[in-house]
Amino acid sequence: MASRPLSAFWAILRRDLLLAFRHRGELANPLLFFLMIVSLYPLGISPEPDLLRAIAPGAVWIAALLSALFSMENLFRGDFQDGTLEQIALSPQPLPLLLAAKILAHWLVSGLPMILMAPVLALLLSMPAAATWALVYTLALGTPLLSLIGAVGTALTVGLKRGGVLLTLLVMPLYIPILIFATNAVSAAAAGLPISGQLYFLAALLVLALTLSPLAIAAAVRISLG
């Protein structure tokens, strides 16, 4: 009996990954979005390598915020529209755990590829090797945070007709600490400074979000269904 909540967790994770795989054509869209925003900076500001190097941490991270938000909008929408979300909410298994499985699946198909693509973007913006590694570390800690916090906003707006812009308004201010610490870590690494402090802070935020946000997300989903 004790293992049953976990088997429901794996079942939802598997189902969402399977669904993502059946729509694999759409998988690349947030990634393309990420790549395109980053490539706008050299075009819009200057291709000068020194300047690019200076703005690179912020450029990549702002693009990451935007593409996380962009992909986040559909996290619960499909399930809400076809009635699966209410079936999930009516399961006797703990709802926060089931929704955590959905978020994990979403992160695996949208957050993880962003981390893998980061070195390419670092190359485009002529970042030094140390900063590239820092970018990978901060994205590894930061993208799950973006997903967890963004999911609260998504759950609150899933029942609304024009939820997209509203979602951005709700979630963007909450993303600011992540942006500050992550970009600072990358800049510090580029300057040859230690970054463990910033990484610890991001890790602490991640632990906090992992424990608290599933509860808020579950409450928000119940409100949106009601």
């Binding site: 916090i149 906003g153 201010p173 909450l174 600011i176 600490p177 808020a216």
Partner: peptide, 15 residues
């Protein structure tokens, strides 16, 4: 829900 999540975040944002 939003206000509670926000007020958990306010000290973090401030800091």
């Amino acid at each position: 829900i939003l206000a509670i999540v926000g007020s958990v975040n306010i000290p973090i944002i401030h800091y």
